[in-house]
Amino acid sequence: MGSDTRYESAIADKNGASTRAQNRPYYTPVGNEEAVFRAAYRQGLSIVLKGPTGCGKTRFVEAMAHDLGRPLITVACHDDLTTADLVGRYLLRGDETVWVDGPLTRAVREGAICYLDEVVEARQDTTVVLHPLADYRRQLPIERLGVTLDAAPGFGLVVSYNPGYQSVLKDLKDSTRQRMVAIEFGFPAPEIEESIVAHEAGVGRETAAALVRFGQAIRRLETGGLREVASTRVLIAAGRLTAEGLSLGEAALAAIAGPLTDDATVGRGLAEMIDVYLDTGTGAGD
């Protein structure tokens, strides 16, 4: 078809982006997570990051890869992710059929850190391929090639998921869990979260503090109408909107309340909370 190169690029873009940051990604530790990660990595142990959406797991991995001087290959897992997407497949190039490595195989060959984001979204028969990599063997069998690759020095396997979001049908297999060191993540303490929002959104500390107070109030709610609680990510998004000239109320409605619920009643309740916590006078019925 004359488009094999473009197709191979599309496979790489879909299934694994390799990055090597020039400057350290901004990350503020909230506990001993950096020390645990470094110790596990030095011992060749695989790592599972557990915590809510938008709490900084991906940024943490980026910062650790930078500190360790390793390239990072990230895979956003999804329902249709197959073993071939991770390991590789044969593609037609002109009159020849050639093998193209998947992101996991590239990481194994190059000694990169492979990060599987939201790993439980992938099918369980796909994640089983991780087992010989995640234990003492540190090997990747490639059945289509009839070879078994030993992980190059520097290779690391990191996966993440949100235990409070996935259903029982989308949980991490016990046989996978017990091959990994777990690092628990939560939302940072208010003063740390304020500094993160201020830095990432480019807003003043007062604006950041107001958004964090509002986010914490949402996290204390007990209602079934919220898809998730307010993450640090949505607070940063609201801050960025205010940096572009929107009022706090407009920014909070668009970046926090809107993404968190489709329920009209809950939405009105969040609008009322915006008036209370951000003192904006937006009006719940506007």
Rank of each mutant, 00 (worst) to 15 (best):
S231F: 12
Y165L: 08
R6C: 00
E110R: 12
G44Y: 10
Y277D: 02
A107K: 06
R268H: 07
G51Q: 08
P190M: 02
V234S: 01
L130T: 00
I47F: 13
G146P: 01
V158C: 06
A284P: 09
A209T: 10
A243G: 12
D174N: 13
I113G: 03
L260C: 05
G154N: 08
A217V: 10
V197Q: 02
D79V: 09
R20G: 00
S160F: 04
E250V: 07
V75E: 02
L86Y: 06
G281L: 07
R268F: 01
P163K: 11
G186E: 12
A134S: 15
E206D: 15
S3L: 11
F37T: 05
Q22T: 15
Y7E: 15
G94H: 11
T74C: 01
E34F: 01
R268M: 07
D263P: 04
C77F: 05
G94Y: 08
A182W: 00
P163A: 09
I183C: 08
Q178R: 15
V234P: 00
Q43H: 12
R179I: 05
T265Y: 11
P103S: 15
L226S: 11
I236T: 11
C55G: 11
V61D: 03
G204P: 05
I113E: 04
I11P: 00
I47Q: 07
H66E: 02
L81P: 01
V212S: 13
K173Q: 14
L116S: 09
L169Q: 13
A189S: 03
P259E: 05
T53V: 14
F187V: 12
V87K: 14
F187G: 00
Y277N: 03
G258A: 15
P103A: 15
L246H: 05
G102I: 02
G16F: 10
L248V: 11
K57F: 09
L169D: 14
M180D: 06
T265H: 12
G54Y: 14
S167N: 08
C77E: 02
E222A: 06
A251E: 04
L278C: 09
P153A: 07
M273I: 11
C55K: 06
A255H: 02
A251L: 07
Y90F: 14
A257G: 03
V120L: 04
S167I: 04
R70H: 09
T127S: 07
Y115W: 09
L72Y: 10
N162Y: 06
E121H: 01
A264Y: 01
G88N: 05
A238K: 03
P153Q: 05
T207F: 02
A252G: 06
L235V: 09
A76C: 00
G224N: 11
Y90H: 15
A217I: 07
P132Q: 13
